[in-house]
């Protein structure tokens, strides 16, 4: 034996899990959705993704090196996730300069102001996304039609999302059954053949990602399933009350960013509760808020806002919702 014997408190072995493994696992789970977005939106999707990822890395590096004066830790993969998620949340024809602003807000305000990975209250990508949505509403809501590599990057033919069609139509007083003719079939919605943000359209790809993450135990089922369940139940009740005014549960789940939000954004480790009980409360909150914003709010889409609002409640949930203790004295 060449060196001195090591002494440390137990346990003496580690499971081998690491931050990188989890982060790159999430990235791997996002690949199907990424591929689908490339297929549907062509070059535009590739440009947007590359810009978002590169600028997230750049801003993280600059801020941690020159503002926080610490050694930048880029290899943990969290900037990559933020970059891809930001790209997933914007239209595939968004100009580069807007993406840069989004990345700066996401990393700069959403993450680094709180002290970097592990300390942020809000999901960084969503902070960037919502900032862009409010600042550049026109660019952020003119979605290109999914025409594959025929989709031009900047001056593409644009169309509304199914949710926007319904919202506008209902405002004009048209009955839902009439409006549904303008909506692609459920199969098309599931496969992602509709207008929308880059990563949110292909439900099938997102579900593949969910299965992978559950299988690899990167996330637990609690958050995504409670969100989807709550949305299904709540919208189902509304639909049964008045089928002409409220769309059904399947429509709500397959359209907009619900699957993307429930699977990849709400499950962000840092900004979600720690205990399973807390996760369920958080999931129910997001589900309810999403439907309320979609159905009764001014915006056609509400997932981002719902997640951000519930992010703000996470510290409170963590303090007041304790996991089930072994041998807890029952009152």
């Amino acid at each position: 034996m060449n060196s001195k014997v090591l002494v440390a408190p137990s346990p003496h072995v580690h499971g081998g899990d690491s931050i990188q493994k989890n982060m790159y696992g999430v990235v791997f789970a996002m690949l199907p959705a990424l591929v689908f977005s490339f297929v549907y939106f062509g070059m535009g999707a590739i440009i947007v993704t590359l810009t978002a990822v590169a600028s997230c890395y750049l801003f993280e590096f600059l801020i941690s090196k020159y503002l926080l004066k610490k050694v930048p830790t880029l290899n943990d993969g969290s900037a990559l996730i933020t970059g891809i998620l930001l790209a997933f949340n914007v239209p595939a024809n968004l100009p580069i300069w807007i993406i840069l602003i989004g990345a700066l807000v996401a990393i700069g305000i959403g993450k680094m102001t709180f002290g970097g990975l592990g300390n942020n209250v809000f999901n960084p990508a969503l902070v960037g996304r919502v900032f862009l949505l409010i600042s550049f509403p026109v660019q952020m809501t003119s979605w290109p039609k999914p025409l594959g590599f025929n989709t031009a990057y900047l001056d593409a033919e644009t169309g509304a999302t199914p949710l926007a069609i319904i919202k506008e139509g209902l405002k004009k007083g048209e009955p839902l059954s009439q409006l549904m003719h303008d909506i692609p079939s459920n199969m098309d919605l599931f496969m992602g053949n509709m207008g929308g943000s880059m990563g949110e359209i292909a439900g099938v790809a997102l579900l593949l990602g969910l299965l992978y993450m559950l299988f690899k135990k990167i996330i637990s089922w609690h958050i995504p399933l409670t969100i989807l369940g709550t949305v299904a139940i709540f919208s189902g009740i509304l639909h049964m009350a008045n089928p002409e005014a409220y769309a059904g549960p399947l429509f709500h789940i397959l359209t907009g960013g619900l699957l993307l939000g429930a699977i990849f954004m709400a499950t962000d480790y840092v900004t979600s509760p720690m205990s399973h009980k807390g996760m369920i409360i958080y999931g129910i909150g997001i589900g309810l808020l999403t439907v309320i914003i979609r159905v009764f709010g001014a915006y056609p889409e509400g997932v981002s806002f719902a997640i951000l609002i519930m992010n703000a409640f996470v510290p409170l949930i963590n303090v007041y919702v304790k996991p089930k203790r072994f041998g807890e004295k029952r009152k």
């Binding site: 931050i19 989890n22 990975l117 592990g118 480790y269 979600s272 720690m274 996991p323 089930k324 807890e328």
Partner: peptide
């Protein structure tokens, strides 16, 4: 990173 894996692993809750 507040992943909560320690909470899930703790046998005493």
């Amino acid at each position: 990173i507040r992943c909560g894996k320690c909470v899930s692993a703790c046998p005493m809750g």
